[in-house]
Design a protein around this nucleic acid. Structure first.
Length: 491
RNA sequence: CGGGGUGUAGCGCAGUUGGCUAGCGUACCUGCUUUGGGAGCAGGGGGUCCCUGGUUCGAGUCCAGGUACCCCGACCA
């Protein structure tokens, strides 16, 4: 009763907002475009962090931390980079406040103006490459494989919880290599890490591809990405991996001496994923009753709800539930036993469904008598009664099944929503009515891409890595094309 | 930055033509009864009606200006 969720059909945006807020993941804050990530939402981020961090370490990376502030002059050293980010930078101009002369409040002290303004990092390439200059002198210093977990600020015109906030949390990997081949290899390796994480942990199928010039990261030679499809048929870029060539090395004069004693610029990559992933997670799986979280990232994997009339019954259930909780926890399963007597079972059922807890175990006097529990799975809503015997194994299997099931469901939806279009009318029709990805021919020019965007709001999400050669004609101009690319409306 | 919307109790909202003590649901506190799908009854506490100024005997309500946030778009992860 107290927490109604807007249905997807009624208002998709409102449904999303309801899930975030009523699911207890995050809240609007007093600061424009900035959200408060609440404990439940943050614990999802912590799981994402922990898992990715392990994957980064396993691929040879180490963590470091660079400053939040970037001297303004640094940003302009790489031409394309500054052009891409200039319009959304928060700028620090002063370092002191003082009491207002009229006695009301406090003002910026005009005498405390900075010599050079500081930019709150929108990304850290510049400050990092300025540092790398001092760290790299010889081929022996390479490769340099560093990751940073940080917050960044991009002053977006319009923000959305998790999907696009003015401040967001992310990780950014910045690597330096002796050869182009090695840097390209690194770029692809990390793209693979992201894709594996998205599919195996978040249960979100992704398409690996590369961006057209229009969509490329500011300062990159090539931008690779993983693209996911949300339930409203819009695409969401879930992670990017950039091959930066020697652009930043040249901008910040980062050279190394080869074995042959020659001085050369180093080759670079950068790659990142952000708290936006949580937005993807929410939209990919959830339904009109609330969140559906993949077991591998759910803060609570199993909730146990007692049902009782008397203190004696509760005492018996407490004993059994604690036993079950312990045996599940011994298998690394996170369990919440909610015997809070301030809420009734029905309320708890609804609440944990809203929060996307994958498995709910209900235990009442009836169960104690029969030596059973009732298990409900969040993804399908199915309820079954199981005996205590081998309960832990059953729950483990069920968690695995749920993980696979929601991935399969998302995969089926995604695959059904990749549509080939060969005529303009067909193309527009799919984008308008069926939605999702449209695989179509494109003549390879930025002009055509922009015209299509103007007409349909769809952009080229990526050119698939495994796109096979196929002769055809551009959907708009009819000019020759050698493979299809994926268009979609996107977040 | 353009278009639309909203600011009244923690949250969600109502408040008529300007009218006297600002209300409803929920949440909260107390008590009793309840507990297998968001409990019931009784009692209780809680307000800078977004801000500033104006009109008026009287403003939550009318007028002007400001401000904040949300939604749709343009920009972007």
């Amino acid at each position: 009763m107290s927490k109604e969720i807007t249905s997807r059909e009624q208002d998709y945006s409102q449904w999303y907002n309801d899930l975030v807020i009523k699911g207890g993941l995050a809240d609007y804050s007093a600061v424009r475009g900035c959200m408060v990530i609440k404990p439940y939402g943050y614990s999802i981020w912590e799981k994402i962090q922990r898992t990715l961090d392990d994957m980064f370490k396993a691929t040879g990376h180490v963590n470091a931390y660079f400053p939040l502030f970037i001297p303004k002059s640094f940003l302009s050293k790489e031409a394309a980079h500054v052009e891409g980010f200039a319009k959304e930078c928060a700028v620090v101009t002063h370092y002191r406040l003082k009491n207002s002369p009229d006695g009301k409040g406090i003002i910026v002290d005009p005498d405390a103006k900075l010599e050079e303004e500081l930019i709150v990092r929108p990304t850290s390439e510049t400050i990092i490459w300025n540092t790398y200059k001092d760290w790299i002198t010889s081929y022996r210093d390479l490769p340099l494989l560093i990751n940073q977990w940080a917050n960044v600020v991009r002053w977006e015109m319009r923000t959305r919880l998790f999907l696009r906030t003015a401040e967001f949390l992310w990780q950014e990997g910045h690597t330096a290599h002796a050869t182009k081949e090695e840097a390209v290899e690194e770029t692809m390796k990390m793209l693979g890490v992201y894709a594996d994480f998205a599919e195996q942990w978040m249960a979100i199928p992704v398409i690996k591809g590369y961006k057209t010039a229009n969509e490329r990261f500011a300062g990159a030679e090539d931008t690779y990405c993983i693209e996911a499809l949300m339930q409203d048929g819009k695409a969401l870029q879930a992670g990017t991996s950039h091959f930066l060539g020697q652009n930043f090395a040249k901008a910040f004069d980062v050279k190394f001496v080869t074995k042959e004693n020659k001085s050369e610029f180093v080759w670079a990559t950068s790659w990142g994923v952000s708290t936006r992933l949580i937005g993807a997670l929410i939209m990919a799986h959830s339904d009109d009753k609330g969140l559906i979280l993949p077991p591998k990232l759910a803060p609570i994997q199993v909730v146990i709800v007692p049902i009782y009339k008397t203190e004696e019954q509760l005492a018996t259930i407490n004993e059994k539930a604690t036993e079950i909780k312990k045996s599940l926890e011994a298998k690394g399963i996170s369990v919440k036993y909610d015997n809070d007597d301030k809420q009734k079972p029905g309320w708890k059922f609804a609440e944990y469904e809203m929060k996307g807890v994958p498995i709910r175990i209900a235990m009442g006097p009836r169960d104690i008598e029969n030596g059973t529990v009732e298990i409900a799975r969040r993804d399908t809503g199915e309820k079954h009664t199981y005996s205590f015997t081998d309960l832990t194994t059953k729950v483990e299997h069920l968690l695995e099944q749920i993980q696979l099931n929601i991935f399969q469901k998302a995969l089926d939806y995604r695959d059904e929503h990749i549509t080939r279009a060969d005529t303009w009318d067909e193309f527009v029709d799919v984008l308008e009515n069926k939605t999702g990805f449209v695989a179509a021919h494109w003549d390879g020019t930025s002009e055509t891409e922009l015209k299509i965007k103007e007409k349909t709001k769809a952009t080229i999400r990526c050119i698939e890595l495994n796109a096979h050669a196929e002769e055809g004609k551009c959907i708009l101009t009819g000019n020759p094309s050698h493979k299809r690319v994926l268009f979609a409306k996107a977040y």
